[in-house]
Computed example of a mutant assay.
Amino acid sequence: MSEVFSATSADTAVEGAEDPDLALARDGDDAAFTRLIEPLRRELHAHCYRMLGSTHDADDALQDALLRAWRGLARFEGRSSLRSWLYTVATRTCLDIVETRGRRALPVDLGPSSDHTVVGDNPLADVAWLGPYPDAGLGDGPAGPDARYEQREAVELAFVAALQHLPGNQRAALLLFEVLGFSAAEIATTMNTSTTSVNSALARARKVVEEKVPSPTQQRTLRKIDDARLREIVAGFSTALERGDADTLAALLTQDVTWSMPPMAHWYHGIAAVIDFALRVPLTGCGSWRHLPTSANGQPAVGFYLWNDDLGAYLNWSINVLTLRGERIAEITTFIGPDHFPSFGLPASLA
C-alpha cells in the first residue's frame, strides 16, 4: 500500500526550503529522522491509543508505524506536511492491527450488571480489555480548523469505549475527520477508498458514538468545577477507601453510579449495589490501601496500592478513573494490574 499522501487541510506543508533534517533522513541519517519525528511522537501515540484502546497496543503500533515511515521516507514527496504523512502511516498501521486483534471491551460490554456482590471474582484472560491512558501522553499538536472534538475529549473513556464498537474503517474516518480535521477527500486517500464511502462510514460512526457517549463531555463537566473542589472529591473518594468509610463514599456518588473492574467481568449499577460491593470487597475484604492521585483519559484518576505482608510494602494494584456528573462520581472504572502503572510514571510500591 503506497504511503504517499496528498496535502491536507489539517496541516498543509509549508512552501519553501525543505527541512535539512528531511534531506538527511532520506539519505539514511537516523538521528535526523529522530529529530523530525520526536515533536510529533506524543500526538501520534495518542492517535494510536484512540484507534486501539490500549496503551501497550499504541506503543507497538507507533513503533511499527515509525519503522514503516523510516523505510518509506524516500517515497514521501513533500506534497503534504510530514505530520500529515505520518498520520497516514500510523492510521494504516492501526487498521492492520484492528483486523488481527479485534476490539477492546469494558465489563459493561459483556453483559448486565450483577445484582449481588461477587466475592473472589476471577479475571477473564481471554478478553481484550480497554485500558487507561495517561494524560502526560496526550499530544499537543493542533487539530484541524474543522475538528469537532478537542484532544482531551477524544481520549475520554466513554468516547474511546464507543470507538471500539466501530469497524476499523469507521473508527479511522471519525478520528481523522472529527478529531484531526481532515477532509473526506483526504481521508479517502489515506484509506484507499472513495469519498462516498468515507461519508457513509462517517454517518454510521457518528450515529453509534452519539448513542453511546453521554452529554456533556467530561471536559465540559470538569471546567465547571473549581480545581480545589475537584481535588476534594478525588481526595474524599481515596480516603474513604483507605478508611473503610462507606458513608463518605456514598455521599460522593450519584444514585445511578456504576463500578467496573477490568479484567473482572462483574460490574455494579446503582448506589445500593455499589455500596454493598464496596463494603464487602475494597472497604473490608482486601486489606490496607494507600493512594496517589493522577490523571487518565482527561479525567481525574487515582493509583491505589494494596498492603503486602510478605514484602512489607504497599504494591501497585489499580488505576481508578473517575467519571463525574456535576460534583458527584457517576462511574468508577478500576483498571486492575501493575502493568498500568509505568506509563503513568507511578512507583511500583509505597513504603
Rank of each mutant, 00 (worst) to 15 (best):
V4W: 07
D11P: 03
D19N: 15
D19M: 08
L22S: 00
L24T: 04
D29T: 00
D30P: 12
A31N: 10
E38A: 15
L52I: 10
G53A: 13
W70E: 13
R71D: 12
L73W: 08
F76S: 08
T88N: 13
C94V: 13
P112I: 00
G120I: 01
D121Q: 12
P123T: 03
A125H: 14
G144I: 04
P145H: 15
P145C: 08
A147C: 08
R152E: 14
A162Y: 09
L163S: 10
H165E: 14
L166M: 12
G168Y: 05
A184F: 11
E186L: 03
E186F: 05
M191V: 10
N192W: 11
N192V: 10
S197R: 12
A203Q: 12
V208F: 02
V208N: 02
Q219G: 01
R220F: 07
T221K: 06
T221D: 01
R223N: 13
L230Y: 03
A240Q: 02
D245L: 09
A246E: 03
I275S: 13
F277V: 06
A278Y: 03
P282Y: 02
P282K: 10
P293W: 05
A296W: 09
Q299E: 00
A301P: 07
G303E: 05
W307E: 00
D309W: 06
A330I: 03
S343F: 11
F344C: 01
S349D: 10
